Simulated scan of single mutants.
Amino acid sequence: MSGGYNQWLFVISAYTVVILATVGILTTSWLQMRRAEQRLPSRKISKKDPPRAH
């Protein structure tokens, strides 16, 4: 290698970007899921309700 370029700087930077992007996507997805769950009508299931067919 010439010019003092260190390939590990690029590798570490690339992994950092990927890890931060993954954490960001997981966080936003989790928050959106929690908001969607809160918007669902809360329905209490009693023993009289027939089972749902899927």
Rank of each mutant, 00 (worst) to 15 (best):
E37M: 14
R34Y: 05
R35A: 07
V18K: 09
S46P: 09
Q32Y: 02
V18Y: 11
L20E: 01
L26I: 03
L40N: 10
R39S: 12
P51S: 11
V11M: 15
H54C: 13
L9R: 11
T27M: 09
V18G: 04
A14S: 15
A53R: 06
Y15H: 07
M33K: 07
Q38F: 09
G4D: 00
G4P: 00
S46I: 02
S42W: 00
A14G: 09
F10H: 03
R39A: 14
K48S: 13
S42A: 01
R39W: 03
V23C: 07
V17C: 08
H54K: 10
R35Q: 12
W30Q: 04
W8S: 06
L40H: 05
R35Y: 06
K48F: 06
G3C: 00
W30I: 13
N6M: 04
R52K: 13
A53M: 06
R43M: 02
I25Q: 08
R39F: 01
L20A: 10
V18A: 13
A14L: 05
M33P: 00
M33D: 05
D49T: 15
P51F: 08
Y15K: 02
A53G: 13
P50C: 09
E37Q: 15
Q7V: 14
K48C: 04
P50L: 09
Q32K: 08
R39T: 00
W8K: 05
T27F: 10
Q32R: 15
T27A: 11
E37I: 06
A36C: 00
S46T: 15
G24M: 07
T27C: 04
I25N: 04
H54T: 07
G3A: 03
G4C: 03
G24Y: 08
M1Q: 08
L40F: 04
W30Y: 10
S46D: 11
Q32M: 10
F10Q: 14
W30L: 08
V23Q: 10
Q32E: 04
Y15R: 03
T28M: 12
T28E: 06
L9S: 04
V17S: 02
I25P: 00
I19M: 09
M1A: 10
R43I: 00
T28V: 13
Y15Q: 07
L40S: 05
A21V: 11
F10D: 15
I25A: 09
D49R: 14
R35S: 07
K44Y: 01
R43C: 02
K48R: 14
S2H: 06
S29K: 10
G4Y: 03
P50A: 14
S2K: 08
L40C: 10
S29M: 04
G24P: 01
S2V: 09
L31C: 07
L20H: 02
G24I: 01
G3V: 02
K44M: 00
S2P: 10
E37W: 08
L9Y: 02
S42R: 07
I19W: 09
V17P: 00
G3N: 01
F10T: 10
I45R: 15
A21R: 04
G4M: 02
Q38N: 11
V17M: 09
I12K: 08
H54W: 01
S13M: 06
L31F: 12
P50I: 10
P51K: 15
M1R: 14
L20D: 00
Q38L: 13
S46N: 10
T27D: 01
R34E: 02
G24E: 03
I25S: 05
Q7I: 11
K44T: 01
W30R: 14
K48I: 05
K47G: 14
A14Y: 04
S29E: 02
S2A: 15
